[in-house]
Amino acid sequence: MSPTRDIEALIELMARLPGLGPRSARRAVLQLVRKRDLLMAPLAAQLLKVAETARECALCGNVGTTEICHICADERRANGEICVVEDVADLWAMERAGVFKGRYHVLGGTLSALDQIGPEQLRIPALVARVADEGVTEVILALNATIDGQTTAHYIADQLEGRVRLTSLAQGVPVGGELDYLDDGTISAALSARKDI
């Protein structure tokens, strides 16, 4: 039995996290061990606390510690707009921007025939029910500009056609972007979505 077996097991677990490979995980664990009182003990306590209290919001699918997340519980955000996103990371990105003042709906992925992910595996039926029950006036499809994301957006648009205003995020040249560095698809989307000046 190796004297560092527990440490190696921690490195292997950390390496499973997105964005951390074996080297990054090893560096992180070494830093935690070196500063165990300052970093490791509080991290372990917080991980245990979150493991016990974290849950998905019953309405939108956001992650929090209550049955209904703070966004859905905020009556000021009941303005009839729902922004549909693929996962919680996308919701958090939208919130960081601080420009959307409505509510969200997290699908939990996108439709994918290859991965056998259909509407029932996602939160699409729950979205259709919310539109009917909550007096929604606009659904903003903020899905990734991938084949699966666009397929999902078209499916949702078909399900909600005639019931609510459907919009999507604009696509094209990013702020500060230079045309020379953009791919053909981005340039094409930007040209198609052009607007009057």
Rank of each mutant, 00 (worst) to 15 (best):
P3R: 07
P3L: 12
D6Q: 14
E8M: 02
L10W: 04
E12N: 12
E12P: 07
E12S: 14
R16Y: 04
P18G: 03
P18D: 05
G19H: 00
L20I: 06
S24N: 10
A25E: 06
R26N: 11
V29Y: 00
Q31S: 15
V33C: 09
V33Q: 03
K35V: 09
K35G: 13
K35T: 12
D37K: 15
L39K: 07
P42M: 11
P42A: 05
A44L: 11
A44V: 04
A45H: 08
L47N: 10
L47G: 06
V50S: 12
E52F: 09
T53G: 05
A54M: 06
A54C: 06
R55T: 12
E56S: 14
A58V: 14
L59R: 13
L59C: 12
L59A: 12
G61T: 08
E67Y: 11
E67V: 13
E67F: 13
I68L: 10
I68S: 02
C69T: 02
C69M: 01
H70M: 12
C72D: 05
A73P: 10
D74L: 09
E75C: 09
R77M: 00
A78T: 12
A78N: 14
N79Q: 08
G80V: 08
I82T: 09
C83W: 01
V84W: 05
D87F: 09
V88T: 02
A89K: 13
A89Y: 08
L91G: 04
A93H: 08
M94E: 12
E95Y: 06
R96E: 15
G98Y: 10
G98N: 07
F100M: 00
K101L: 08
K101R: 13
K101Q: 05
G102N: 01
Y104Q: 02
Y104E: 00
H105G: 05
V106F: 01
L107M: 03
T110E: 06
T110V: 14
S112M: 06
A113F: 13
A113M: 11
L114R: 07
D115T: 04
D115A: 15
Q116V: 12
I117S: 07
E120M: 10
L122W: 01
R123T: 03
A126S: 07
L127W: 04
V128T: 00
A129K: 13
A129Q: 14
A129M: 07
A129F: 07
R130G: 02
A132M: 01
A132I: 05
D133Q: 15
G135N: 05
G135V: 05
V139N: 01
I140Q: 06
I140T: 10
A142K: 03
A145Y: 03
A145S: 01
T146A: 04
D148C: 02
G149M: 00
Q150L: 06
T152I: 00
T152Y: 01
A153R: 02
Y155P: 04
Y155T: 03
I156Y: 00
A157L: 12
Q159F: 07
G162D: 02
L166K: 00
L166C: 03
L166F: 01
L169F: 04
L169K: 02
L169T: 04
Q171W: 14
Q171C: 11
P174N: 11
P174I: 09
V175I: 15
G177I: 04
L179D: 11
Y181P: 07
L182A: 13
D184P: 08
D184G: 09
D184Y: 09
T186V: 11
I187L: 15
S188G: 12
L191T: 06
S192L: 15
S192R: 15
A193F: 11
R194S: 06
D196E: 15
D196N: 14
I197P: 03
